[in-house]
């Protein structure tokens, strides 16, 4: 029996196409939604509007203190009990969005708090509303400051989706595992998955450094 068969390896790749499509969909939708939610949470945590603050803090602490798998189980098995029927994809998107938002919220909060008070003063002095101040003056600067931890979070997002198989989503990792069982050739089955993940995460490390250098120039 050969150690590594190129034939099997190359034939494995087509199996991964739907899985990659699914994963990319989840990554992009989740990133967009969770960033918006996280920014809202960060602003709530900074300005502390009474009830919302406690709700936001509670939310963030819960989602940071429990594993993603448990959250997935909670939604997947729990929601039908409440009469809410969601597809596996929707549950997956929901859980990953929420946990990602919880982590990103803290990162974004730190970024905003790092912006000097005088920037707020200059913006208000011009007559800008809170919303416009955040949108045009504060958030652009904050996001540039937090590129490294934020790309770290994106990396965690990409890797985090691997466990979605627990709610029967055919993600990249699950595809590899099922293929390994089917073909009895685990090496050729997992190798494409490894390559796919590294192809997604390794460039992020370098993009992070490049963006950091470029945007830090006109930061503050």
């Amino acid at each position: 029996m050969s150690i590594f068969s190129w034939r099997v390896f190359l034939n494995s790749w087509p199996e991964f196409v739907p899985a990659v499509g699914l994963s990319v969909q989840i990554w992009t939708v989740t990133f967009g939604l969770s960033t918006v939610l996280a920014t809202l949470l960060a602003i709530i945590r900074i300005y502390r509007p009474l009830i919302l603050y406690w709700m936001a803090s509670f939310f963030i602490q819960i989602f940071r203190s429990t594993p993603l798998i448990i959250q997935l189980y909670f939604f997947y098995f729990g929601l039908p009990h409440l009469g809410i029927m969601m597809s596996e994809m929707q549950v997956g998107l929901l859980a990953v969005t929420l946990i990602n938002a919880a982590f990103s919220a803290e990162i974004i909060r730190v970024g905003i708090e790092a912006i000097h008070r005088t920037q707020f003063e200059a913006a208000y002095a011009l007559g800008l509303t809170f919303f416009d101040t955040m949108r045009y003056v504060i958030l652009p600067q904050a996001f540039r400051k937090i590129i490294p931890p934020l790309t770290g979070q994106v990396t965690l997002l990409i890797k985090g989706t691997a466990v979605l198989s627990v709610i029967a989503l055919r993600e990249v990792t699950e595809t590899a595992r099922a293929l390994a069982v089917w073909t009895f050739r685990p090496l050729e089955s997992f190798l494409p998955a490894i390559i796919i993940y590294l192809a997604a995460t390794l460039p992020l490390f370098f993009i992070s450094k490049v963006l950091e250098r470029r945007w830090a120039r006109h930061g503050a």
Binding site: K159, T161, A162, T173, A176, R177, I194, Y197, T201, F205
Partner: peptide, 11 residues
């Protein structure tokens, strides 16, 4: 750092 923990576990 680049791979999900699950992949490493499965490997």
């Amino acid at each position: 750092r680049g791979l999900p923990f699950l992949i490493i576990l499965f490997v």
